[in-house]
Design a protein around this nucleic acid. Sequence first.
DNA 1: GGGTTATTGATAACCGTCTATCAAAAACAG
DNA 2: CTGTTTTTGATAGACGGTTATCAATAACCC
Lengths: 128, 128
Amino acid sequence: MNRRNTRQREIIRAVLAQADRPLSPAELLARASGQLPNLGIATIYRTLRLLTEEGWLAPIELPGEATRYELAGKGHHHHFRCRRCRRIFELAGCVLRHRPPTPPGFAVESHEVILHGLCAHCAPSATC
Amino acid sequence: MNRRNTRQREIIRAVLAQADRPLSPAELLARASGQLPNLGIATIYRTLRLLTEEGWLAPIELPGEATRYELAGKGHHHHFRCRRCRRIFELAGCVLRHRPPTPPGFAVESHEVILHGLCAHCAPSATC
DNA sequence: GGGTTATTGATAACCGTCTATCAAAAACAG
DNA sequence: CTGTTTTTGATAGACGGTTATCAATAACCC
């Protein structure tokens, strides 16, 4: 069960490494297809799972949407979702004021913050 | 197209009004079935949609889980999800420090905070 | 180069959530 | 009470994301 370095995996890793924002499997396929036309969506999912298990990728789970993936080890931060183009953007840092108050007996292990709104492309001021 | 007051709707409203935490359609069905044994899941979904459109209910969308519903008009607050029993709990107030910094051009309209961990029932200290 | 074996691509199948369908039941108005 | 119209329950189906299947392909090692 030795791991092999295939062209597919190299390209997928490269696309993710250069991505400007967390990508969904479909977005990743679209970008990688440019360099390897008949790359299959199954390979995308398989490779994403592999890279996540290796600890190289971090999944971002979202309500009602495909999981996005970004490079792991970026430090604690949160995300912005555009309600128009549905793209996810990375934000700098954490905005939590303090350890949030929970009822007695509750053990908080992590938290997740998602901002909603319009991104720079989709905001009314921008040229759409 | 006059709206009718049915036993089903009365019971569903009553269960939601008395709920200790946001409920999924399945949880709601389980509770309401006690008072009306062959209530159907379709009626649950239909009534949830109705009550949400009326503004009486607020949906809570979650990654990879069924939407939960709670009474609307409770004021700004957030939620806790237990990673063991998957139940959702309501938290008091908001823990955001300040308007979060976003890249120029981004328009934030709302935000969402979800804490993860173990609830009082599932935490190791509690009698499970 | 050649054999072995991991990997791929295409696609069917899966899964959980939710919606459509439709005959039967029930609420309402008069 | 009775006719009309909404609502219900059961279930099939839609839907989007993801995984399984399997023959064909391609890494890797000697």
